[in-house]
Simulated scan of single mutants.
Amino acid sequence: MSRIGLKPIEIPAGVEVKVDNANVVTVKGPKGELTQQVDKGMTINIEDNTVTVVRPSESKRDRSLHGLTRTLVGNMVEGVTSGYKKTLVIEGTGYRAAKAGKKLTLNLGYSHPIEVEDPQGIEVEVPDAHTIVITGIDKQKVGNFAANIRDYRKPEPYKGKGVRYIDEHIRRKVGKTGK
């Protein structure tokens, strides 16, 4: 029994959810519109400002897709109402970020600066040289873009230099001991 799949999704005021015959879910809200193709076996019911997902059988595949489908639709509803935000922190001597137009420029200790173009639907802000704030309505795009930026220079365990999430804790190692 899927505890997540059985939970109903509340539809806030100002949000419109539609499902067509091919199980394409479209959610419109104050921040934008998202569309997602879900598995054809799942039944999505919309009643009285709630969305429920019903699985066709008790097979292993259907049970695993039940919770996934509910979570995808729930993330779409949350994205168009409040949006998603990831904050990255840059630590290290000479490491910094700058924003010019739609280009994010990262100086992360390499011989050249790294320039990254903002993906469509994602907004990147640089409040100071050591902080990057990524916002958007699609949870997957926001998380993927943040992970790609972090991959340019992952935090290392000895001095903690690199790009990390603001709530990420880096386990520090002691390093060499002198004689």
Rank of each mutant, 00 (worst) to 15 (best):
V73C: 10
K154E: 15
K40C: 04
S82P: 06
A147T: 13
D118I: 08
V38D: 02
K31E: 07
P8M: 02
D151K: 11
V80E: 06
T131W: 09
G14Y: 03
R150D: 06
G178E: 11
V19R: 04
D128T: 04
I166Q: 15
H112P: 09
I11R: 05
Y152I: 03
R172C: 00
Y84P: 10
A129Y: 13
V15C: 10
P56W: 03
K176Y: 04
V54L: 15
R171T: 01
V15I: 15
E125I: 01
P157K: 05
G136Y: 00
T87Y: 04
T135V: 09
K161F: 13
K102E: 11
H66I: 08
K154G: 06
G162I: 02
R3Y: 15
A13V: 07
V17F: 00
V19F: 02
T43L: 10
G67R: 00
V51S: 07
G92H: 07
N23Q: 08
H130Q: 10
G29Y: 13
Y158W: 07
E115L: 04
K31W: 00
L34Q: 08
V51C: 10
A129R: 14
V133K: 07
V80A: 00
K7N: 14
L72R: 12
V27D: 12
K40I: 06
L34W: 01
P113T: 06
K40D: 10
N148Q: 15
R70Y: 11
D151L: 06
V54H: 11
V25Q: 04
L65A: 12
H66P: 05
I9L: 01
F145N: 04
A13C: 07
G41W: 06
K102N: 12
T71A: 15
K31P: 05
A22N: 09
A98I: 13
F145T: 06
R70E: 12
K18Q: 14
Y165S: 09
P30M: 01
T131V: 05
P155M: 01
E125H: 06
V73R: 11
Y84C: 12
I137Y: 05
D151W: 07
I11G: 03
D20E: 11
T105V: 04
S59I: 01
Y110Q: 04
K85Y: 01
I122R: 05
R150L: 15
L65M: 13
A13W: 04
N45T: 15
N21D: 09
E117F: 07
E115P: 06
E115K: 12
R171P: 07
G14N: 03
G41I: 09
P113I: 08
G175D: 00
I132Q: 08
K179T: 11
K18A: 09
G79L: 08
G74Y: 13
Y95G: 02
P8K: 11
V51N: 07
I170S: 04
P8R: 12
V51A: 09
A97S: 10
T35V: 08
P127T: 08
T50V: 15
G121Y: 01
R96C: 01
V54S: 11
Y95R: 10
K40M: 08
K161Y: 15
G143N: 14
T177Y: 10
E58P: 01
T71N: 10
N75G: 06
N21T: 05
S82T: 07
